[in-house]
Write a protein that binds this DNA or RNA. Structure first.
Ligand code: SF4
Ligand code: SF4
Lengths: 154, 154
DNA sequence: CCAATCGTGGACAACAAATATCCGCGATAG
DNA sequence: CTATCGCGGATATTTGTTGTCCACGATTGG
């Protein structure tokens, strides 16, 4: 089990964009250079975030990215799901219906206890990520870092 | 982000083994056949569970597997960590120390808010899995399935 | 209108991890 | 002593992640 590195990239970029003045867009090469990331690959993740509404992209000269809505209304879970997709991490293969101990399908109407347990844990994980917003992340930035990054995006 | 299918295999096998009489071992090919799994690969996961103490393996003729301790003392998290390993799913790459916006290492002593958020979510996930034991899974088996599986391992 | 800029999205390559198989080994029951 | 059975390393196959490239459309400014 492993979380894509794109999640970290997306969260850092979103936090940085939250420091920009309203309606100010930041070019992609700026974001990539600031964190030392491969621009072409970062583009993939930013595009996914834009499709999810977390970011808003502006094409053309003087184009770039800005947050799709106010930072206080973007949760960490929003970014995670935008980058990673929202497919549940535990995909059931219904092995109880295979092999010599296979059960008839009518005994498998409702998901079993194993499935329920894994799903509950996944929801606990998501609920935890939903309690933190990009605005919270910004608020917890050290003052020096905040000032420094504000200059970058202004 | 995806959870290894071996977790599902391990949980199913542990639940099945919990139905066996005490000190009764079940051969690996029985387990594999019962769920229609590749025996050689299932062996890898069972070995990992045995190393973690979740299962106990008996070599030699009449050998096989039994639970490493009573079912009520084996949590789902124990099985998950035995099979998946316990490396945290969010591995930080410290991108704040790279690129043109790199911060000096002395500003990166403590993990940032992003790291803390992901870690908290991971702990919530683990805590949820810790609340369910193999005994709980057995208790939630349909009566018919329980009887049927008890015959298999007796 | 024209040309330079910039994000879009698909195709593709390189790499890493999960999945699956095989075989020699040691332990043990009979 | 021998057949059985789990152990664990080596290895192949498949899948997913990571990274690059390029043609395209949209937009700005001249
Ligand atoms: S739903 Fe439950 S019984 Fe069916 S395959 Fe998934 S974990 Fe196994
Ligand atoms: S600790 Fe925080 S700032 Fe450093 S790389 Fe991880 S997420 Fe980024």
């Amino acid at each position: 089990m492993k979380i894509s590195q794109g999640v970290e990239w997306g969260l850092h970029c979103a936090t940085l964009l939250a420091l920009a003045p309203p309606d100010r867009v930041v070019r992609r090469d700026r974001l990539a250079a600031h964190y030392g990331l491969p621009e072409a690959y970062l583009a993939k993740h930013l595009q996914a975030m834009a499709r999810a509404g977390v970011l808003h992209a502006v094409p053309g000269p003087r184009g770039g990215y800005r947050l799709g809505r106010e930072a206080a209304r973007i949760t960490v879970l929003d970014v995670v799901e935008a980058v990673e997709g929202s497919t549940p991490p535990f995909l059931c293969q219904e092995i109880r219906q295979r092999g010599t101990g296979a059960l008839p399908p009518d005994q498998c109407r409702r998901p079993c206890a194993i499935h329920a347990t894994m799903t509950a844990a996944d929801q606990a994980w998501r609920a935890s990520l939903r309690t933190v917003t990009i605005a919270d992340l910004v608020a917890r930035l050290p003052a020096g870092v905040r000032e420094r990054n504000e200059k970058i995006v202004s």
